[in-house]
Design a protein around this nucleic acid. Sequence first.
RNA 1: GCGGGUAUAGCUCAAUGGUAGAGCACUAGCCUUCCAAGCUUGUGACGAGGGUUCGAUUCCCUCUACCCGCUCCA
Length: 531
Amino acid sequence: MHPNIWKASGHVDTFSDPMVDCLVTKKRVRADHVEPQSGVVYKWSGATEIQGVADAGELPTSALAAIDAAGVSFSVLLAKGKPPESARKVAIQFYQQRGLKQPELLGETTASIENTRAFNPENGAQLTEPKPFNLMFHTFVGATATDADKAYLRPETAQAIFAQFKNVVDSTRQKVPFGVCQIGKAFRNEVTPRNFTFRSREFEQMELEFFIKPDEAIRITHGSVAQWSEGADLSAPKPNWGWEMWHRYWVAQRTAYYHSIGLTDEVLAYHWQTPEELAHYARACVDILFKFPFGTDELEGIAARGNFDLSQHQEHSGKSQEVFDEELRAAANKLDEAAKAAIVADAESEWAAGAAKKGVSEEVGRTAARAFCEKLFKGIYIPHVIEPSAGLDRLALAVLCLAYSEVEKTDPKGNVEKVNVMRFHPRVAPIKVAVFPLLKNKPELVAKARGVYDLLKKHLAADYDEGGSIGRRYARQDEAGTPFGVTIDFDTIGENGPDLLDTVTLRHRDDARQERVPISELLPRMLAAIS
RNA sequence: GCGGGUAUAGCUCAAUGGUAGAGCACUAGCCUUCCAAGCUUGUGACGAGGGUUCGAUUCCCUCUACCCGCUCCA
């Protein structure tokens, strides 16, 4: 996507972390994560091989390294209360890594220094100059590779929604509140892609931008804004909801979704970001986490982002991102001047405080608040947004981790073997049902089983298997995580009386339980389990 | 990008400076009346490039991918 999109979204400026490396341990950390330190710095202009070592015909490479290292300066911040010798030890380590066997330090000087971030707090060793590490991949679109052709691979799908916001509003006749969602690839130049597919440079992201009215608009149309409190009814949206209720609503909705595919509260965790953790434009953000085997980590973030994104795009593109709300204008027209003045006064004090936080004068905030209210009374505003943003790969990984189980089985000979069962919730199981004839050399059973398979496969992901023994086929499906097994036996074809005709064995994956079920009941039962 | 490790069949592992084996899985057939029985059959691999050598999967170099550590937030 065009660089200006990412300029407007703030990614070009903020999605870049300055990184520094420790020259001795090679450890890489974010420059702004290094604690500022004060103390005495020992500096050396270089090092050479201690006399005698090179002469002894030790290693020619060592002698060459001595020449190279003679002009390489290095410094160490002496830890408080430690002897200078400890700093020299670190320096010797540094020069040894450059090929010297027994370095002799040259040109030692000392100086005191205040609040520096140039040294590794762990060992005092000098760090490299900060190098920007941009999390966005860039490329060139078109035949020439000049700056004008530069483009970024999107680091999130959300900005495409904002950039197209007006198109959607103008063409789909939606009224706020409404949502636009997108699923697709996103790319980030991660320093450390790890933990299987948990963090990867190319990932599948699902984002929803749910656009809502500013709280002030709700106040105009409904007199007041619903306040959230513990236990509030979030089952269905109400017209007097402001951003906080909508935010809680989406947290509840997303939680209900995770529950519906088997991710219970036992394996989920929530992190409500503290005011210090929040991005400056965000009003609230909650992370939904999953207890992975490698640690509890994030699946999804749900943020209340105010109108930051659309405002940014409006500012950078010069194109209005405002919507017109007839209901709001009608309600505003009915307000008397005192009621309007109260709304303006509240907005003024709130915006003034916000401006002060950002270091702008309060008067700027008040002026902006007045302009905002003036438009609001005409029914015009930039929508605010609630943004659930989830990683699909992460969810898939969570579902796999949760489903995986090992079961010990003892065979008739007494041998214990470990078998794998994927205990997927039926809604996410890749195969919902497998159909087997009890025996494959009995044409009547095979024909009947084929018939049942044909019946089921039109409605759900079904598998048919006649290879090996019946137990083996059950085991195969357990490993694939198929929740239901259907076996056609001699009862099914009526050999043991008319009562059992057209009934089958329904076998359950998780407990190997079997029950007798008429063929006509199979589909309704399974559809109920997966819908 | 830095440091360490790994790379042989779908999986787990062998062996070898001279035609690469097994178990499981998979395929086909026989058999089998409910939880990986048995017999027979078949498919299938040395990550890529270069070097040394009469000959390299094996020794050397380079590259690539993956794993672990450098802390990120989908």
